[in-house]
Amino acid sequence: MDGADFFEKLLNHDPQAQKKLIETFNPRIFLYFRNRIKGENNYEDLVQEVFSAFFRGLDQGKMTSVVWIAPFLFGIAKRVLYNYFYKQRKNNEIQQKVSLVCEVTCDFTEAERMENQKLSQVLNLLIKDLPQIDRLILNAFYLQEKKITEISNMINRSNHYISVRKQRAIKKIKNEIFRKKLY
C-alpha cells in the first residue's frame, strides 16, 4: 500500500487502514505520554483522545496528504498533554472515546503492552547473537547500571570504544529487526 492509497483509505474510513495507523502510532503516543507524565499508570484515555481528535480532524479535511499524519498526531498529542495538565488542576476528566469516530475497537494499553512484550522477545533473541564483548557492555550498562567509565576500566578499553560498541550493538539489533521484518 503506497502513501496516497493509504491516505485515501483512511479518508474512506477503511478499518484496515485505521488499524494500521493505530498500530504504528500507538506505541509512539504511549512513549510520549509516559515520558511527559510521571507517576501515571493509565494513559488509555489520553491516547484515545489523540486518536479521536485525529480521526475527527481527518473528516474535517485538516490534512491533505499522508506526510502530514505524523506532525498532525504530534500536534494533537501536545495539545492533549496540555489539556491534561490544565484540566487536572480543575479536577476534570478527559472523556473522548475513539470508537465514536473510528471503526476499529482497540484496547490501546493492552496493545502497547503486547507490543512491548513482542519487542522484548525479539530483543532477547537477537542479543544472543551479538559478540560476547557487546553483550558484556550492554549487560554492564543497562542491567548493572554501570557508567561508561566504569565499564572501560573493567575491560581495559577507552570510553569512546565502549560508547561506540554500545551504539553499534543496538544499531546491529535494529538493522536485524528491519531485515527480518520482526517489527
Binding site: L31, P71, L119, L123, I127
Partner: peptide, 26 residues
C-alpha cells in the same frame, strides 16, 4: 520519533534495555 520509524525503534530498544525487560546472558 513521531515521524521516523527507524529512530523510534532505536528509542524503544534503548527503553526496553533500560527497563531491564531483557536478559543479557554472557
Amino acid at each position: 520519533f513521531f515521524q521516523c520509524r527507524k529512530c523510534f525503534l532505536g528509542l524503544k530498544l534503548n527503553e526496553a534495555l533500560q527497563n531491564k525487560d531483557v536478559r543479557i546472558t554472557l
